[in-house]
Simulated assay, not measured.
Amino acid sequence: MSIEEGFVEGEREDVAALYWEAFGRKLRPGFVDEATGRMVVRAALRSDRLLVARQADRVVGVCGFYDAGTGVADLGWARLRESLSVPAALRARLVLSVLSRSDRPDVLVLDGICVDRAARGRGIGTALLSAAADRARKIGASTVQLSVIDSNPRARALYERHGFARVGHGALGPLSLLYGFDGYTTMQLEVRG
């Protein structure tokens, strides 16, 4: 297995499918239908915001991160307007704003880790977390931060096994019906030195 920053254009569809499989439930409410959501996310993917795991020249996992205020999928107004009408772009911007995070000084904020369902249990998530910690050190960050939804205990257990500690918790309240999860835990890993 290899992990590198970015993907080649020929991998965009595979990366988009993997990302949508993992996060589509959260992103779907921002769009009029699933096909539109998939199309917009596929077009909005930022290769320079991803660590990509490959086995046998096939994408098997990705780990996104924020940089300069943008994560894996650039769903800002200009990008949304490239694909959507004004009302549809307004809807997407409003609905998805609840999910957005931003980068912070001295912290590498992750924007989703996902592993191909058929490749789970092979250490790919672990390798992506290690690559994220290496990237944090490379850019001079002392901490890696991520959020995990409360309905994903397997992911939370993985993060805890690798030294991530809980630093916060949030709840969506009535919006949980829209997004499909009740709350999330923010976790951090110190990576100094």
Rank of each mutant, 00 (worst) to 15 (best):
residue 87 P to A: 01
residue 110 L to G: 10
residue 96 L to R: 07
residue 111 D to N: 12
residue 112 G to M: 04
residue 97 S to G: 13
residue 95 V to A: 07
residue 115 V to E: 05
residue 102 S to C: 11
residue 113 I to P: 08
residue 114 C to L: 04
residue 86 V to A: 15
residue 86 V to C: 12
residue 103 D to Y: 08
residue 103 D to H: 10
residue 88 A to K: 03
residue 110 L to I: 07
residue 92 A to E: 05
residue 101 R to M: 08
residue 103 D to S: 10
residue 116 D to L: 13
residue 97 S to E: 07
residue 98 V to L: 14
residue 105 P to D: 12
residue 101 R to C: 01
residue 103 D to P: 08
residue 103 D to G: 13
residue 95 V to N: 05
residue 103 D to I: 11
residue 98 V to Y: 06
residue 107 V to W: 14
residue 116 D to N: 14
residue 114 C to W: 00
residue 109 V to Q: 05
residue 106 D to Y: 04
residue 98 V to Q: 14
residue 103 D to A: 11
residue 102 S to F: 09
residue 111 D to W: 12
residue 94 L to P: 06
residue 108 L to R: 07
residue 101 R to N: 05
residue 115 V to L: 02
residue 101 R to W: 05
residue 95 V to Q: 10
residue 88 A to W: 00
residue 118 A to P: 00
residue 97 S to F: 00
residue 104 R to P: 01
residue 107 V to F: 15
residue 93 R to E: 07
residue 116 D to Y: 09
residue 98 V to P: 01
residue 110 L to E: 08
residue 118 A to K: 02
residue 104 R to N: 06
residue 105 P to W: 06
residue 106 D to C: 09
residue 92 A to Y: 06
residue 87 P to G: 03
residue 117 R to I: 01
residue 97 S to C: 11
residue 114 C to D: 03
residue 111 D to H: 14
residue 116 D to F: 12
residue 98 V to A: 15
residue 95 V to R: 06
residue 93 R to P: 01
residue 110 L to P: 00
residue 110 L to V: 06
residue 112 G to W: 04
residue 114 C to A: 09
residue 99 L to M: 09
residue 105 P to K: 04
residue 88 A to D: 02
residue 108 L to G: 10
residue 99 L to D: 07
residue 100 S to M: 13
residue 110 L to A: 07
residue 110 L to D: 04
residue 93 R to L: 05
residue 111 D to R: 13
residue 118 A to N: 00
residue 114 C to E: 05
residue 118 A to V: 01
residue 87 P to H: 02
residue 113 I to D: 11
residue 117 R to Y: 01
residue 103 D to V: 04
residue 91 R to M: 02
residue 95 V to P: 13
residue 118 A to Q: 01
residue 108 L to Y: 13
residue 92 A to D: 07
residue 117 R to C: 02
residue 116 D to S: 15
